[in-house]
């Protein structure tokens, strides 16, 4: 079992065996979380700070529960209401927090690369909880665990990622992870929501939903990120729903046992039909939420082990 990372900044730096290690450990934490007594002690004595520079309820709650279940002291900081408003730079905020000796720093930031920058300046383990349009690694890992449990494997699957690809860090992390694990990936969406040059990532690009969904094993829907859109990417939500919303008719083109996923929060009637989302035979959306906690427990556990293995890990960032 190998996991040689100091931080979890993205999927890109992970090797396939590290992904498998993490998912295997997460399986244990699924079992733990299903017991009445859910307490582990892997993070006993460690301090976890959740720093969210962007609104989040679900991801923050998931990280908080994951930390608490493993015995960490968890603190949440809503950075939007804090010193950023007073003009403090990201690096100064990081240095201030660093002086309080946290062990695990969970960060979400609206700008791509901001979490990498922060990780260079602190000496604890940093987990990326989403940076701009770049990566959201724990989401991709929880999706991978969900797929592996539902399909019995995480390779040689046909997987469609549909909708607002261009604004989605979830799509990027998933694309990288699923590609590393040797799956065939299709990206489906209107060309205005497709990032340029994306076909070079080893994915097939479709702008027709029915054509793209043909014979896939997994359908991943993405939320239409209205808050990130400046200017018209689509003519209207109803036309979007008509052409790209997942309903029973479009889903019928996929394999009969294809599963439906969504990272949440959903816009019912925009990208997904409510009855599909609630169909317990097809939708694994609730499982994804459950796997989210387990995957985050596993990620923090592995990083904490590496942290404890480093001598004097509190001394100096980047060996300085």
């Amino acid at each position: 079992m190998r996991f040689d990372q100091r931080h979890l900044l993205g999927i890109a730096p992970l090797r396939p065996e590290e992904i498998t290690t993490l998912l295997d450990l997460a399986e244990n934490y699924v079992d733990l979380s299903r017991q009445r007594d859910k307490h582990g002690n892997a993070l006993q004595g460690l301090t976890q700070i959740n720093m969210f520079f962007e609104n989040s309820t679900r991801t923050q709650a998931s990280f908080e529960i994951a930390g608490k279940r493993l015995g960490a002291d968890v603190m949440n900081m809503a950075m939007q209401a804090s010193s950023i408003k007073k003009g403090e730079t990201l690096i100064d905020t990081a240095l201030t927090l660093n002086a309080m000796h946290p062990d695990l720093l969970v960060v979400r930031h609206p700008h791509s690369g901001a979490v990498d920058l922060l990780a260079q300046k602190v000496n604890c383990a940093v987990l990326n909880a989403g940076d701009g349009r770049h990566e959201h690694p724990t989401q991709a890992l929880l999706d991978a665990l969900t797929i592996r449990r539902a399909k019995g494997r995480l390779h040689r699957l046909n997987i469609a990622i549909c909708g607002d690809i261009v604004h989605s860090r979830v799509a990027r992390s998933n694309l990288i992870l699923l590609h590393k694990m040797e799956n065939r990936i299709r990206l489906i969406g209107p060309p205005t929501l497709m990032p340029p040059g994306i076909d070079a990532f080893g994915a097939e690009v479709y702008d027709d939903m029915r054509e793209g969904l043909k014979d896939v094993d997994v359908v991943m829907m993405l939320r239409l990120q209205k808050e990130r859109m400046d200017g018209g990417f689509i003519p209207s939500e109803r036309e979007y729903y008509h052409r790209y919303g997942l309903d029973a008719e479009k889903l019928s083109y996929a394999k009969p046992d294809a599963i439906v996923m969504h990272p949440g929060p959903m816009n019912r009637g925009v990208e997904i039909d409510g009855t599909i989302a609630d169909d317990i035979n097809r939708s694994v959306i609730q499982d994804q939420v459950e796997m989210g906690v387990a995957v985050r427990m596993a990620a923090m556990d592995l990083l904490a082990r590496n942290l404890r293995a480093r001598p004097n890990h509190l001394m100096g960032a980047d060996g300085v």
Binding site: D131, P196, I198
Partner: peptide, 20 residues
Amino acid sequence: KGAAATSGKFASLRGIPHVT
């Protein structure tokens, strides 16, 4: 407006706002 990279594979991978 707002672009910090040239459109293409690199900007898409890094998630940087880009201009053609």
